[in-house]
Amino acid sequence: MRVVESQWWIIELPDEWEADQDEDTIVISDEDGVGEIAITTLQKQQGNVDETELQDYMGDVVEQFGPAELTQVAELDGYYIAYQEDGDAVREWYLRYDNLLVLITYSCDQDNAGMDDSAVNEILDTIFIKVDEEE
């Protein structure tokens, strides 16, 4: 197992997965190129992320693809929705932890839908929020 670390969290990756980072997003992909996980973290400057803010981020997706279900991923809680769009199978998590909003998207070709689901779930279950000692 390898570890990927952002400013706010740490996640473990199996050896067959790799991570790249651009300005705001960490992209995790498997060696077979079947699909990829994109994780974006936003930090609220004042106060914690509340239910209304979380639902605002989901707005368009829920309008277009139906209701999201409550979920918990490691220390984070929020919503999960799965849908198909433009030939892709998409799974999205809208999660929060204190003042953090963590947006996670897994996408793959519709023909490969479900192939990596258990691996993706196992990876996401390893996410660990780093607590800032100054807060």
Rank of each mutant, 00 (worst) to 15 (best):
Q7F: 09
T52G: 14
V62N: 06
R96V: 00
L101R: 00
E31F: 12
E53G: 09
L42Q: 07
D60T: 14
Y94E: 07
V49A: 04
D15E: 15
D86V: 08
D22L: 08
D30S: 01
D60G: 14
D98F: 05
E53W: 06
I127M: 07
E69A: 15
D132M: 04
L103R: 01
I37V: 05
D86G: 11
A113D: 08
I81D: 02
C108D: 06
Q45P: 11
S118A: 13
D50C: 06
Y57P: 03
I28G: 02
Q64H: 12
A82D: 14
V61Q: 07
Y97P: 01
M1F: 14
C108I: 04
A74R: 05
I127E: 03
T52R: 11
D22G: 05
Y57R: 10
S118V: 15
D132A: 01
E92G: 06
I28F: 04
N112P: 05
I123F: 04
F65L: 05
N121A: 15
D117W: 01
E75T: 09
V49I: 08
Y57M: 10
A19G: 07
G59N: 13
V4F: 10
Y94H: 07
I26Y: 03
D125L: 10
L95E: 02
L101V: 03
R96S: 08
V120Y: 01
Q46R: 12
Q72I: 08
D125P: 00
Y97K: 00
D109H: 08
L124A: 03
L101E: 00
Y106R: 04
L76E: 00
Y97N: 01
I39R: 05
Q64R: 13
N99G: 00
A89L: 08
Q43P: 02
I11E: 01
E133L: 15
D20Q: 15
Q55M: 14
Q21C: 11
N112G: 06
W17S: 00
F128S: 10
